[in-house]
Design a protein around this nucleic acid. Structure first.
Lengths: 206, 206
DNA sequence: GCGCCAAGTTAACGCTGTCAACTTTTTGTG
DNA sequence: CACAAAAAGTTGACAGCGTTAACTTGGCGC
């Protein structure tokens, strides 16, 4: 008897996807750490401890899939929140705020994303592509700013790395509770201060 | 027969210090990850697997001691490299460069520092104090800059958080190989660009 | 209808952090 | 100076982990 959803599935009905979802659910529930164990993921899905190895080479491969999903969601959040403001500087700042907001909203997922993502190994090319797309939002805003003469000249990718450093560092300091801020309003005003200051520093000296 | 150094030691001769040193040595050797195991630390020192528990409550407590040592060394590096330039803006930028340089020189130690440090729990007060002293270097430079009217007004701690975010994020992206940079000279020019841009953004609008 | 191979299971290995119970050494005090 | 108490270190065990080998099951292509 075929399952209701008889797509690519064999026995279970798309394990792999189910494993990613379960891992993400565990990560989301206990935002404390990345102490998610492969065996617990399997338990939650209802398969044996070794079943995941038919879909992922090892634990890192599963986490890489979770990370890729995270970068896709980050891209979506950036695109939605950055909007279509005609001012590239406003877009750049908005993308920075949206970036940190995403990290605050999904701290454990954000940690997995950046504990897995590496640029060197070319095997995880789909993960790299997903991360690159999210990063491109900032590059595009900076290029547009340079095109209208609002942002200082220079390699836009390099300037985007600077921007990324700021929001990445701020996001990590906040979600790892390394700044004495608990009130979300305080966090957001700090994010605003940070992104405003950086955008100012990237502007073309008049 | 007392040991050569019969200070506070009982049996071994200052285990605890030896454990911290061994842990730091392991971390330094394999800069790959924080996969340092308590048992391997004990093995290297030549004691049994349970001996560390007479000196540290658990593995995290040992890593916290390693982290504290790291923050002290970071403070030292910041003080040395920041120098005594009369221009607070130059000092601020120099401290940022020194910060990232430290992280690049000691990547695994830097990771342990920030995977252990949390502001909330008041029990690790010595760790917090060490981190606070390093952070104070940036706060002082910013306060000095405000005093001579070179830096925009505002809570200097908040402005220092912005600075810290930038250098922390840049340091992590670099040491975790999340930027496509391998040449150290390329890294350093990016660090310069980043710190220059931020300092510019923090300056008082004239 | 049937064989084959993907998908899933069981059992085991070596590793880990941690604890309880025990032994050894040092030290403070009557 | 003796000796008890406490500090420091050891052994052995437990549960959990990632991973692999050997096995079983079940659905699809011929």
């Amino acid at each position: 008897m075929p399952k209701a959803r008889s797509r690519v599935t064999y026995h279970h009905g798309d394990l792999g996807k189910a494993l990613i979802d379960a891992a993400l659910a565990i990560i989301t529930e206990e935002q404390d750490a990345a102490n998610v164990s492969l065996r617990e993921v399997a338990r939650r899905v209802g398969v044996s401890q070794a079943a995941p190895y038919r879909h992922f080479a090892d634990k890192d491969a599963l986490l890489a899939a979770v990370a890729e999903e995270g970068f896709q969601r980050l891209l979506n959040a950036l695109q939605v929140d950055t909007g279509s403001d005609p001012d590239p500087l406003a877009r750049l700042q908005a993308s920075g705020v949206a970036y940190v907001k995403f990290a605050i909203a999904h701290p454990a997922h954000y940690r997995v994303m950046f504990s897995t993502f590496r640029v060197d190994q070319e095997n995880n090319s789909s993960l790299n592509a997903a991360a690159g797309k999210a990063f491109a939002v900032m590059v595009d805003a900076i290029s547009a700013g340079q095109a209208i003469g609002a942002i200082q000249p220079g390699n836009p990718r390099q300037l985007a790395w600077v921007t990324w450093s700021l929001v990445h560092g701020l996001a990590l300091l906040l979600i790892d509770r390394q700044l004495p801020l608990v009130d979300e309003q305080d966090m957001l005003s700090l994010v605003t201060l940070a992104t405003q200051s950086l955008v100012r520093g990237l502007q073309k000296p008049s």
